[in-house]
Amino acid sequence: MKPLLLSLFIASSLTACVAIPSSPNNQQPETASTPAVAESEQTPLPYPDLNSMADQREQFEQLAIQVVRLEQQVEQLQMRVHQLEQRSHSAPRNTPRPRMASKPETMPVSGSLKNVTHPSAQNLLHQAQMQFKQGNYRATATILHDADSGGDGSEIARQSMYLLLQSQQKLGNCQSVINIGQRYASRFASSTFAADALYAVGDCQWKIQQQDIAKDTWRNLIRLYPNSLAARRSAIHLK
């Protein structure tokens, strides 16, 4: 009996060795970082906006017209002040100096120049010539709007009328060129620019599909001014 108990005791006393599995170190998988490569954006080459340039051109011409009109307004006010000063000097000493009952009327900044009292034809012609040299043909035509009939027929009136014709020709207003050119050649037939005015008339008639009428205009030009440069140019068109 004792050997049996001894063997049971030995068996129960034996300690079972439990193998604890060693867990491997948790290693994070190395993730390869891929640097983001920014793609270089190519900016397009700047090209000029033709519509924007045309708008700026038109705004510049409108500003030039306003400057001219403001100059005329200043000159009108100066002339009125000068007249008042002369009137006060010529009045008797015991007569009180006349006072202005109201503010002087100012000229409109916008609108047609027909409603504006021009300070002087010479001044207007000078301003128009400056605008024409700068390529502001619309401003030139606006300043000389009343010169389309030749005015009093003076030298300044003839120059203003022909400059108006040239500005309308630059603007491509053929109907205005025909009307002004015919009046100029009829009224100022002895002028040095009469032949050129007729040539411009024929050129515009040709452009608006009036070829037969244009040829008659050039033939008339050659008959009236045979030695002019405009006559030689007209003969080339008739060949």
Rank of each mutant, 00 (worst) to 15 (best):
L45C: 03
N227K: 15
R138N: 08
R69W: 11
H118K: 15
S112F: 06
A157P: 02
N179R: 14
M161S: 07
I156S: 13
I180Q: 01
L229I: 09
D152P: 09
N220Y: 06
D146R: 12
K207T: 09
Q59K: 05
G150S: 04
G153Q: 03
A200M: 05
A91V: 01
I156V: 14
V81L: 15
L50D: 13
P35Y: 06
R158H: 03
H126L: 10
Q42N: 06
A189S: 15
P98N: 01
A54Q: 14
R183D: 02
R93A: 14
F132K: 05
V74E: 15
P119N: 15
R80Q: 14
T117R: 15
S190M: 07
Y199A: 00
T106L: 15
I20L: 13
Y162F: 15
S190D: 11
M1I: 07
L8I: 15
P48R: 11
F9E: 05
D146W: 11
K114P: 10
D203R: 07
K133V: 06
Q131R: 04
A200H: 01
T15C: 12
S88P: 03
Q182I: 00
P226C: 00
P44M: 13
N136L: 10
A32E: 13
A32G: 10
L125Q: 00
R87M: 04
L125C: 03
L70G: 09
L125R: 02
G111R: 07
E155G: 10
P48N: 11
R232V: 07
A231P: 08
E155S: 08
R99A: 09
P35I: 07
P98G: 05
